[in-house]
Amino acid sequence: MTAVVDLRGVTKSFGGHRVLDDVDLELAEGTVTVILGPSGSGKSTLLRTINHLEKIDRGQVRVNGTLIGYRQVGERLHELPERDILRQRSRIGFVFQQFNLFPHLTVLENVVEAPVSAQRRRRSEVEVEARALLARVGLGDKAAAYPRQLSGGQQQRVAIARALALHPDVILFDEPTSALDPELVGEVLAVIKELARDGATLVVVTHEVGFAREVADTVVFLDGGRIVEQGPPEQVIDHPAHARTRAFLDRVL
């Protein structure tokens, strides 16, 4: 089985501060990976290297075998032109903590925009699909609303529909419920769980340990830019091998 996402020796510094330190990670198709770790441990940066929102200093990132952001010439990696990177990104879904919906566009226009402009698909066809996606995340009646007319949970579900509309190979979630009121967290997690049941490949950065235990195939614990341990949730969450993992779990549970 080939890995959908394959990171090898990914290293990244901001100034002199090493934020990712030689990270190796392989995610199989149809699996759910939850990344746990303290604030500032590099979770967002790791996720953002996967779609090249963040350039890396060393190592390589592959999605479905394709090198992301670079072209290999002999022993060197040359950064691709922006046009090519954008094309690669349209196969990788990304859901932000702050939703980042386009406030001046309606919910439907938010979902339709990228498939039409990035993947050059027919608008009429995409609109039909977008309405179906909105119904799937429980917002079939909100197509004409503007994002600010929706609750946080609804906005995040629109953001998920927007990512799905591109038929991505993998969807990356960066703390998708951290900006939500507690009573709205459940509705967003329910949508993510349903995607997992349908066999999508997902990477989720979250502090919801309960969600990780229930849905994750693999839990990755990140600290100081290094993967401290990874494995099935029963192992990493219930029987952590490292003191740092235990200390973190004691704090969040």
Binding site: S90, F94, F102, A114, A118
Partner: peptide, 8 residues
């Protein structure tokens, strides 16, 4: 967000 969606 626009560039994560691959919008030109």
């Amino acid at each position: 967000a626009a560039s994560a969606l691959g919008i030109p």
